[in-house]
């Protein structure tokens, strides 16, 4: 009965092979970001560093860079030179994090303010146009009034880039015709097509075109 023995051997091998069906590779004994941990009482695998810990490269020796203040007063200079890249980055970050309330124009009429959040002041009022640069950085870092702090969502360098962009917004909204370079039309022409979406964010909902409506009716 050679064939029977062969068959038995085959079945045994197949059973052994099935024994390999475990999820050890799929679910490895490590913690994925923000995964639940049964070890700690608060069930967080992501731990906060012990208070007073200084991460490598995070000593924050440059207090002005991280606080926007000289002593107790906000300073009025940028801690690094501003170039086109800084301005573009500032615009992008402004449109992501600030525009929901402050609006892309900085007039304080963003969608969240329209939905009932306390309306922020326009950046174009006298007080804020005269405010030193460090003031804006400090508000972003520590919050002000109803505005929460954004220190955990925006890096310090990006916060400074936003400061530069806010100043540019203020200048743009209060520019006189004499300041416009010769030969440039005001208001400047709309960008030809979608490359004008600064942050690349989804534009607000559009009314469906008549074509879409027709297809919907057919359904």
């Amino acid at each position: 009965m050679l064939s029977f023995r062969r068959l038995t051997a085959f079945v045994l091998m197949a059973l052994l092979w099935l024994g390999g069906c475990r999820l050890d590779m799929q679910v490895q004994p490590r913690l994925n970001p923000l995964a639940k941990s049964d070890f700690y009482p608060d069930q967080r695998s992501a731990r906060s560093p012990v208070e007073g810990t200084v991460a490598r490269g995070d000593l924050r020796e440059d207090t002005y860079f991280y606080s926007g203040k000289i002593g107790n007063n906000p300073g009025d200079y940028m801690p690094f030179p501003v170039n086109q890249d800084v301005m573009l980055r500032g615009r992008e970050r402004f449109n992501i994090y600030c525009a929901p309330c402050h609006s892309r124009l900085g007039d304080g009429n963003g969608t969240i303010a329209q939905r009932g959040f306390r309306r922020p002041p326009s950046f174009h009022i006298e007080r804020l146009r005269k405010a030193p640069l460090g003031y804006f950085f400090d508000v972003m870092t520590n919050g002000f009034g109803a505005m929460p702090d954004y220190a955990s969502q925006i890096s310090a360098r990006d916060r400074w880039s936003i400061v530069a962009y806010i100043r540019a917004l203020q200048l743009s909204q209060n520019a006189s015709s004499a300041e416009i370079p010769a030969g440039q039309k005001m208001p400047s022409a709309m960008p030809e097509q979608r490359s004008g979406l600064d942050s690349g964010a989804t534009p607000p909902a559009r009314a469906p075109s008549s074509k879409d409506k027709n297809t919907e009716q057919r359904k």
Binding site: I96, A99, P100, T111, Q153, A201, P203, P204
Partner: peptide, 14 residues
């Protein structure tokens, strides 16, 4: 949050 309010993905997914 995205279509209705125009909040960018990165506002939350930083």
């Amino acid at each position: 949050h995205v279509t209705g309010l125009g909040i960018d993905c990165r506002y939350c997914h930083t």
